[in-house]
């Protein structure tokens, strides 16, 4: 029996979809059977980030309304052989096409076949959020080091704590060392003490993430990017390994400086 994890944030645009795509791919690369579910009905884009958009035939609403079987709607990611699948959101605009009960039984069914079901939640706290959370066993809250994102994360955590799921875990995305150092962004400590939930991991802000998303190739496929390392570490923590938090030191440092910083520790 697999485990369903919802990836949520409250505030929009903080990186839920990017996180879902990358963690899904990382878990699949580790040999787990993973199904990603896009619940952002009307605004689907998990398929784009994965580069699977042109292979969609059926979607979530088709499954729920019985127009097809689940396996007919799942799109397979050929890059990670038979390990990663996507259930796309419908592009119809009616957000209320799906109910939490329907989501619950859908996720139950997927859990029989997959090790991990990652549910990409839409922004906000309305129907779409309720659907996304309905079938989940666990929750990951994504935030960025901005006050508005942290406030919304706090709100979402409060709502998640009312659900009968495990205490949510936190990912801080788009970390910029320069801003944190001079106090223009909240630092990791401030955020975790404010929200007082466990930190699952951090991901640095990197142009590579944007360009890889545009190419439809999740950044975790690139082993040399530091953002990629962040996602890989998080995936390993989800699998139960204890991986120390990576340092946010600038990865663009020259080799010489790196050596100096090693010796001067």
């Amino acid at each position: 029996m697999g485990e369903a994890i919802v990836i949520t944030s409250g505030k929009g645009g903080v990186g839920k979809t990017t996180t879902t795509a990358n963690l899904g791919t990382a878990l699949a690369l580790q040999g787990k059977k993973v199904c990603l579910v896009d619940t952002d009905i009307g605004l689907r884009n998990l398929d784009l980030v994965l580069g699977l958009d042109n292979r969609i035939i059926y979607d979530l609403v088709d499954v729920v309304e019985g127009r097809c079987k689940i396996h007919q709607a799942l799109v397979r990611d050929k890059r990670v052989d038979d390990k990663l699948f996507l259930l796309p959101a419908a592009q119809t605009t009616d957000k209320n096409a799906v109910t939490p009960e329907q989501m619950k039984s859908l996720v139950e069914e997927l859990k029989r076949e997959y090790d991990y079901i990652l549910i990409d939640c839409p922004a906000g706290i309305e129907q779409g959020y309720k659907n996304a959370v309905a079938g989940a066993d666990r929750a990951i809250v994504v935030t960025t080091p901005e006050i508005s994102a942290v406030r919304d994360a706090d709100r979402i955590i409060g709502l998640l704590e009312q659900e009968s799921i495990e205490p949510p875990k936190l990912i801080i995305n788009r970390i910029r060392k320069d801003l944190m150092k001079n106090g223009d962004a909240l630092d990791i400590n401030e955020i975790t003490t404010h929200l007082s939930i466990d930190l699952l991991g951090i991901v640095i802000d990197s142009e590579d993430v944007i360009s890889s998303s545009n190419k439809g190739e999740p950044i975790v496929m690139d082993p040399n990017s530091k953002a990629s390392l962040g996602y890989r570490n998080i995936a390993r923590r989800i699998l139960g390994e204890s991986v120390p938090l990576m340092s946010i030191e600038d990865h663009s440092k020259g080799m010489f400086k790196k050596l100096i910083s090693i010796f001067s520790r």
Partner: peptide, 8 residues
């Protein structure tokens, strides 16, 4: 006992 979070 617990945290009174945003909106609560």
């Amino acid at each position: 006992v617990g945290i009174v979070r945003s909106g609560q």
